[in-house]
Write a protein that binds this DNA or RNA. Structure first.
Lengths: 113, 113
DNA sequence: AATACATATGAATATTTGTTCATATGTTCA
DNA sequence: TGAACATATGAACAAATATTCATATGTATT
């Protein structure tokens, strides 16, 4: 960790002043981290078509119930999805429109190439 | 991995048909994965204020040159940033406006709460 | 109440990943 | 050309994480 070059001090201060707080940046990274897994993206993509129960997701993703439930728990604790029970089944859906928007932004970025 | 419930077959097929390809979804997850680290988010946030050389970033982030360079390499290979050399220094900047937009979307999501 | 079904969850394991340390590469200037 | 500076990079290690396996919880049905 070298010393700060005096001629950089100004631009560093200015940039720092314009950046969001460390707390916001850390939370932002944490949100993206949750989007940054193939299984979770597949789940979010499926749910963006409408709510779906766990076993439906397992069938669709061709993954074990346990693996899917674990990832649903991650998504839920990050508040990207919400759930409601109907009898024996639990239906999951995107928590709000914002989530679908973030997903779309990412997909568009990949598709435009 | 249980059998597919026959009554789910239709909704599963329909959902599948509307979802992006596995390849797109995997690439999307990979993009978000790169955004999903505090150091990289801090770098991207700094660069969204304008281009900056490596040592400036080290000073700003208060991190070792090696750690910063490693993350710059990750960001560059994911095409989120680009670089240009000027003398001994190398200046990094966001690769295109899209990157700043994705970053902003994430930050807004965190800030609105 | 007992059984079957749908989902959740703890522990263990294997893989991925971020930082550090040491060193290599490339540029400038004397 | 040699020394100093800016940056990159390989290897090693520690920490984080996704899946599996086994099992627990909660609901409906008989």
């Amino acid at each position: 960790m070298a010393d700060i070059h005096p001629e950089h001090a100004h631009i560093i201060e200015q940039t720092k002043a314009n950046m969001p707080s460390e707390e916001i940046l850390e939370k932002t990274a944490d949100v993206f981290k949750v989007f940054g897994d193939k299984t979770r993206i597949r789940i979010l993509s499926a749910l963006s078509e409408g709510e779906m129960c766990v076993c439906c997701l397992c069938d669709l993703l061709e993954m074990s119930q346990s693996a899917v439930s674990h990832q649903l728990a991650v998504l839920k604790s990050a508040r990207l999805i919400k759930s409601r029970r109907e009898g024996k089944q639990i239906y999951y859906s995107l928590d709000d429109a914002h989530i679908g928007a973030i997903l779309c932004t990412g997909i568009s970025h990949v598709e435009e190439d």
